[in-house]
């Protein structure tokens, strides 16, 4: 898969990682954590199978769990940031106990709070999310630093061998804003319709 680029720091460029993960997605449902990951999934294509979050910090992974349990035949990817994941880090334990085969938690780790002035997060100071996920009981917990590892991650997301946790070290450079609709009732209704058809609105 071409187009996975490295930034000035030699780390992966976030938009190219997300574009590669969501390419030819075959119905993959994606939840984007608030801030840059929500803009990243939107930049890859503002489609109904995306649920970009404008808030609910710390909740993205658990939203993925509820969705994955409700739709066991669909693949679900939560794509979020290191700050958002740290706020809901206990949810890795909850997810590990539930063992959803169709759920992947992918953390785009730039080691900073990007939306609030690039303050450093704990991952900047050695906190190892992969080890925390593995300790929680997620056996497939992986560190992703190269294009090849992104391609392998994409294959694993679609294989349904989860739960998967991936910490993707990315370049910290900000990308241009690509905003999804801000009216969140539209965001949930369009995803529900994509999954269940018009009947979703009569549930």
């Amino acid at each position: 898969m071409s187009g996975i680029e490295l930034g000035a720091t030699g780390k992966l460029k976030r938009r190219s990682v997300v574009r590669a993960l969501l390419q030819d997605r075959d119905g993959l449902l994606a939840i984007g954590g608030l801030g840059a990951p929500a803009w990243d999934i939107t930049a890859a294509g503002d489609v109904p199978e995306n649920l970009p979050l404008w808030g609910g910090m710390g909740g993205a992974a658990m939203m993925g769990l509820g969705l994955a349990l409700a739709q066991p035949t669909r693949k679900v990817a939560v794509i979020t940031g290191d700050g958002e994941m740290l706020m809901g880090i206990g949810s890795l334990a909850t997810i590990a106990v539930q063992k959803p085969r169709n759920l992947s938690i992918i953390v785009l780790d730039n080691e900073h709070y990007g939306e609030t002035g690039m303050q450093e997060t704990h991952t900047r100071h050695g906190v190892d999310l992969v080890t925390m996920a593995r300790g929680a009981g997620i056996a497939d917990a992986r560190l992703v630093r190269t294009a090849e590892e992104v391609i392998a991650l994409r294959a694993a997301v679609h294989a349904g061998t989860g739960p998967i946790f991936a910490q993707v070290k990315i370049d910290e450079a900000s990308e241009p804003l690509v905003l999804p609709p801000r009216e969140a009732s539209i965001l949930q209704a369009r995803m529900r319709e994509a999954i269940m058809g018009k009947a979703a609105h009569l549930q």
């Binding site: 449902l29 710390g58 939203m63 509820g66 969705l67 994955a68 349990l69 206990g90 949810s91 549930q203």
Partner: peptide
């Protein structure tokens, strides 16, 4: 407990 608020949202997205 806030995990539960998030989980119920995900469940509803998936029709449960």
């Amino acid at each position: 407990e806030e995990e539960g608020i998030a989980m119920l949202f995900g469940a509803w997205l998936g029709g449960e």
